[in-house]
Nucleic acid binder design. Structure first.
Lengths: 151, 151
DNA sequence: TATTGTTATACTCTATAACTATA
DNA sequence: TATAGTTATAGAGTATAACAATA
C-alpha cells in the first residue's frame, strides 16, 4: 500500500464550476439584449418540452425555489411571453405555457447563446473534440441528481 | 435567410452549470470528512504550484474576494495546515505556504474527490469518452477569463 | 387535513467601504 | 499617496415560515 500521491489532473468539479461561471457571465449580456434575466431564460427553457405544468414542478425542473420564480413568471406573463391560467380541474394549479412570442424570444436568445458557444468551441477545440465534449456532457447532464450524488 | 430554428442541443452552459452544482454538492460530504470547507479546499489547491504568494493574489487565483478568504486562512493557519509569514522585503505582504500536514491533507482530500469522480465517469462513460471529456475541459478551463468572455 | 400559489421574514453569502500598517 | 491586510457594514440572493384559496 503506497502513500497517496498527487493526482495528475485537476478535479472535474474544479474545472467545470469556474467554466460554468465564465460561460454564464459571458452570456448575460446576450440575454440582456433580449430583455431576459438568467432565471427568465431558464423558465422559458423549462417550459420547452411540455407546454403546461404547475409552478412548483417548473421550479423543481429548473433547480429553483418555488418562491423564487413567482416574480419572474409574473413579469413574463405581463410581457405576453407566457400564459398562466388556472387549471379548471384543480383551480389551485396554474397551467403554464409559452406564447408564440415567448417561443420566438426563447429561440432567438438560444440561437445567440449557442452561436457564441459554438464559436468559442471552434476557436479552441477541433470539431471532433467539441462533439465529444458535448456528447459526454449531454450524457452526464441527463443523469438524475440522485445518480450524480450516489456514492 | 431562413427563420431562426430550435437548436438541437442544450446550451453548453445549461449543461455545465447544473452539473457543476451537482458535483459540488456530492463532494461536500467528502470535504467535510477531511474537515474542509469548499473555500478551504480551494485555498489548499491554490497554494499548490507556487508555495508562496500574497493573499490578494491567492484570492484572485481562486476566484474569491480578498476579504472572503481571510477567515479561511486564519483557520487553516491555526490548524497548522498553512503558514502565513510577513515578507521581510515588504512587511505588508504575507507569504503563504502549505505545511507538510497541509500537503498531506490536500492530497488526501483530492484523492477522495477524484476517486469519486473517476467512479462516476466510469459508470456512465467509456474510458475514451472520459478521457476526451477531461481533455476538452482541461483545454477550456486553462483559458484566461478574458478569452472566455471574448465575443 | 393537505396542497398550490403567494407574501413576508430571516438568513446566508458576497461585495463595498472604512481603518491600520507599512511603503 | 498608494498598497496589503483587516474589520465592519451594507447589499444581493436565497430559503424558511406564515397565509389565503382550493381540494
Amino acid at each position: 500500500m503506497s502513500a497517496a500521491r498527487r493526482p495528475p489532473r485537476k478535479d472535474l468539479a474544479a474545472m467545470i464550476v469556474p467554466l460554468g461561471r465564465a460561460l454564464t457571465a459571458a452570456e448575460l449580456p446576450l440575454l440582456r439584449e433580449h430583455g431576459l434575466t438568467m432565471w427568465a431564460y431558464s423558465v422559458l427553457l423549462g417550459l420547452d418540452p411540455e407546454p403546461l405544468r404547475s409552478q412548483a414542478a417548473l421550479a423543481e425542473a429548473i433547480g429553483a425555489d418555488k418562491t423564487r420564480i413567482i416574480g419572474v413568471l409574473a413579469d413574463l406573463e405581463a410581457r405576453g411571453l407566457i400564459t398562466r391560467t388556472p387549471d379548471p380541474a384543480d383551480r389551485r394549479v396554474r397551467l403554464l405555457a409559452l406564447t408564440p412570442e415567448g417561443i420566438r424570444l426563447r429561440d432567438a436568445a438560444q440561437n445567440a447563446i449557442q452561436s457564441r458557444e459554438d464559436a468559442l468551441l471552434a476557436r479552441h477545440l477541433t470539431p471532433e473534440q467539441s462533439a465529444a465534449l458535448l456528447a459526454a456532457l449531454a450524457t452526464l447532464s441527463a443523469l438524475p441528481a440522485e445518480v450524480l450524488a450516489a456514492r
